[in-house]
Amino acid sequence: MSSRNQDSLRTRVAIDGHDFYLTSGSDLTDVMSRIQNIARTEPGFLTLATTTGIASVLISASTRVIIQQEPDYTHSGAIETIQSYDPEWDL
């Protein structure tokens, strides 16, 4: 059986095709409200705390935004599987 922890989710915010992964403490409701408020007015910058730093993205009424929660397998056993590779199986 797999050692993956499927209870752990990460939030991906895709803005015009660019993916941003929010930090675990991010308030998703607040992020969604800020996106809606900016999209209803003049274009403006949305600042997000991401897993790789701070991102500021220009949002307008025509910006395409997709928010998705997905399983976080970053702490899975996948690394162990790669490290236990047996070279004797090479042809």
Score class of each variant (00 low, 15 high):
6 Q>M: 03
86 D>F: 02
77 G>M: 04
67 I>V: 03
83 Q>G: 04
19 D>E: 13
62 S>L: 14
72 D>W: 05
64 R>G: 10
14 A>R: 10
46 L>Y: 03
82 I>K: 15
32 M>N: 11
8 S>M: 14
54 I>N: 05
29 T>Q: 11
48 L>Q: 08
4 R>E: 01
83 Q>V: 04
54 I>G: 01
37 N>L: 06
12 R>M: 10
81 T>S: 13
28 L>Y: 11
3 S>L: 09
70 E>S: 03
72 D>F: 00
3 S>W: 03
16 D>N: 08
4 R>T: 00
59 I>Y: 03
65 V>N: 03
1 M>Y: 09
76 S>N: 07
5 N>K: 07
7 D>R: 10
86 D>E: 10
82 I>A: 15
86 D>T: 03
88 E>A: 10
87 P>S: 10
77 G>H: 09
54 I>C: 01
65 V>K: 04
19 D>A: 08
2 S>L: 11
14 A>G: 02
32 M>F: 02
14 A>H: 00
58 L>A: 09
74 T>D: 13
21 Y>D: 12
28 L>D: 15
19 D>Y: 04
31 V>C: 08
6 Q>C: 09
6 Q>R: 07
31 V>F: 02
25 G>R: 15
22 L>A: 06
64 R>Q: 14
67 I>F: 00
28 L>S: 11
38 I>H: 02
20 F>V: 00
23 T>A: 06
71 P>H: 01
47 T>L: 04
3 S>C: 00
58 L>M: 13
13 V>I: 04
41 T>W: 09
43 P>A: 13
43 P>F: 07
38 I>L: 02
2 S>K: 13
89 W>G: 13
71 P>Y: 05
58 L>Q: 12
5 N>Y: 07
9 L>C: 03
67 I>S: 05
43 P>C: 12
64 R>M: 15
24 S>N: 13
69 Q>D: 02
91 L>A: 14
42 E>Y: 14
1 M>G: 12
85 Y>L: 09
60 S>R: 01
46 L>E: 02
80 E>Q: 09
34 R>H: 05
29 T>R: 12
26 S>A: 14
39 A>D: 01
35 I>H: 04
49 A>S: 11
49 A>V: 14
47 T>M: 04
60 S>F: 10
21 Y>H: 11
12 R>K: 13
42 E>W: 12
60 S>K: 02
37 N>C: 00
74 T>G: 03
79 I>F: 14
71 P>G: 07
24 S>H: 14
11 T>E: 06
65 V>E: 08
90 D>F: 06
34 R>C: 03
68 Q>P: 04
79 I>W: 11
31 V>I: 03
32 M>E: 13
31 V>G: 09
18 H>C: 14
24 S>F: 14
69 Q>H: 01
78 A>W: 08
91 L>W: 08
16 D>F: 09
10 R>Y: 05
5 N>R: 07
2 S>T: 05
74 T>S: 11
37 N>D: 10
25 G>I: 12
14 A>Y: 07
71 P>L: 01
86 D>H: 08
23 T>S: 05
17 G>T: 15
17 G>I: 15
71 P>S: 00
40 R>T: 05
81 T>W: 13
60 S>Q: 08
18 H>V: 15
51 T>H: 00
8 S>N: 13
38 I>D: 00
16 D>K: 06
89 W>E: 12
89 W>I: 15
